[in-house]
Simulated assay, not measured.
Amino acid sequence: MVAPTTPTARRPWPRILLGGLALWAATVLVTVATANSNLLPTIVLLGSFLVPVTFAVWAYEHGTSGTITVPLLFNGFVVGGVLGVLGASVLERYLLHPSLWMYAGVGLIEEAVKLAALVFVARRMRVRSMRDGLVLGATVGFGFAAFESSGYAFNALFTVQGISVRSMVETEILRGLLSPLGHGLWTAITGGVLFAASRTRWHITGGGVLAYLGVSALHALWDSMHGIAIALTLFLTGTPWQYQLLDHGYLPRATGAQGHLITIMNWAGLVVISAVALLWLRALAERSRTAPRPSVPAPDVAGRPYPGSS
């Protein structure tokens, strides 16, 4: 007689998170204790991929409608993630220049390349639903976040004082905590809207364009929130000598009280941005539960497959 399966046993994501966290912590401790630089790539990979992989598995368990297979999920995470970071790197290198609007450009570019990567990964799906778009979009977004975070962690390793494991670990912890509220969340939204309008053939609708622009705006606000917090703090509490430095092109040093206010405003802004995105995602998820699932069209009389299946 087979013993009943507990909810935890049916859902592997808690074991992935806890097991991966234990391995990452053990690797950090051994690296520090032995000064073995060969373990540094292991810290980078485990720390950067743990949370995105866990949430991709969580999304698959909670949102799949049956058409998202494990190989497709893997392709979405790896292929979609790599294509996204490569496309963003090329476009941002040649299209963006330092300016007040740089973060808006980053948001537009990165959300566009992730959406293009999602379409590429899902090109052979014969039929699509909003629920599929939410899951596969989140997976592509988390893949993008994982590869991007590994780059940030690698760069944080090298400081003016030399190699700093502490700086790399702090970077991975911060990005790991914030990753569920970033790329995966934003691409899930655009993926769900796109798939809802493209059940059997790809369609670009007004709602899809608005979703893309809205998510890009959230992305831009997220990236620029620290600068916005500094500007608001100077506007509310700035002193004459600070304004004089600004007039001469210098950024004045914040006072202790201003530093605390900047931190509070920064995190408050991130909370508001995340809340808006989560409420948006929840509304789409509720719609996806009641949306009718389209039937798979039969081949034509000549035996040729459905046009959207390849």
Rank of each mutant, 00 (worst) to 15 (best):
A283C: 06
A9F: 02
G192H: 08
A9T: 04
L17N: 00
P240C: 10
V140H: 02
I228A: 09
E172P: 03
Y152E: 05
G151V: 05
L245Q: 15
P299C: 09
G162V: 13
L251M: 14
W24E: 03
A277V: 05
P12V: 03
R126Q: 11
T237P: 04
M1R: 15
L261E: 07
H62E: 12
L46R: 01
L234S: 04
F142V: 05
G214E: 06
S129F: 06
L95A: 14
R123M: 09
R282K: 13
L73A: 15
F147Q: 06
A26N: 09
V79Y: 04
T8F: 14
M265E: 03
R123F: 11
L86D: 09
N75K: 14
V85M: 10
G63H: 03
L86T: 12
G47E: 07
A3D: 10
I264G: 09
L185W: 04
W13I: 00
Y60E: 01
L72E: 00
L45R: 03
W24C: 05
L279F: 15
T205S: 15
W222S: 02
V70M: 13
P252C: 08
I43F: 05
I16P: 01
P98K: 06
V209Y: 11
G249I: 11
L236D: 15
V51M: 11
F120S: 08
L23I: 11
L234Y: 08
G182W: 00
Y152F: 13
E286V: 15
I109E: 03
A116T: 05
G208V: 05
S295W: 07
M125R: 02
Q244L: 12
L95P: 08
V127H: 08
P305A: 12
S65W: 03
